[in-house]
């Protein structure tokens, strides 16, 4: 029930502060993507927006104040929006299939390897992005590339 209700309409509804951001802060559209597409795109966001993400996190390490890293945060959001738009322009069908599969499988990656491989291939061909899991053992296939995994969905 994440619908917007104007404050004061119901006394038991959560209070939402209607004040907009001060005009001194440049406006950036929020991403507005739900959890399954985000999870589907997570590794590509990590690859595509690496510099912005790291810059933002280093800034947050300096100071926890939300006002301190607004600029870096806007860059992070713009980069992610850019990537999602590119994904939808180039691999819309594969992206849709993968996140729908995640949605149906408790948002776990391992039952959705088939649509994931199609998406990964499309992303590599069209945008040159690969999914790599940092810290995976060297010299072995990464989990999402294993041909016959032990853990699969209950139904084949």
């Amino acid at each position: 029930m994440a619908t917007y209700r104007p404050p004061g309409e119901q006394s038991n509804s959560p209070y939402i502060d209607p004040t907009p951001l001060p005009s001194s802060v440049p406006r950036v559209n929020e991403l507005g993507v739900t959890s399954a597409p985000l999870k589907s795109a997570a590794f590509f966001i990590g690859a595509y927006c690496k510099e912005y993400n790291e810059d933002f996190m280093l800034c947050k390490q300096e100071n926890r104040n939300p006002a301190h890293c607004l600029k870096e945060g806007r860059r992070v959001t713009r980069c992610a929006t850019d990537l999602i738009e590119k994904m939808r322009a180039n691999c819309a069908e594969q992206f849709e299939k993968h996140w729908q599969c995640l949605e149906l499988n408790n948002q776990e990656y391992y039952p959705c390897r088939k649509p994931e491989r199609v998406l990964n291939k499309c992303m590599f061909d069209k945008l040159g992005l690969t999914k790599t899991i940092p810290g995976s053992p060297a010299g072995q296939k990464q989990v999402h590339e294993v041909e016959k995994p032990i853990f699969t969905g209950v139904q084949k």
């Binding site: 999870k39 997570a42 933002f56």
Partner: peptide
């Protein structure tokens, strides 16, 4: 790692809201 990659994005959005 899928969550770690999303942390900056979600944190940035939350920070803007808190700041507002």
């Amino acid at each position: 790692w899928s969550r770690i990659h999303l942390v900056p994005l979600l944190l940035a959005e939350g920070d803007r809201d808190i700041y507002r």
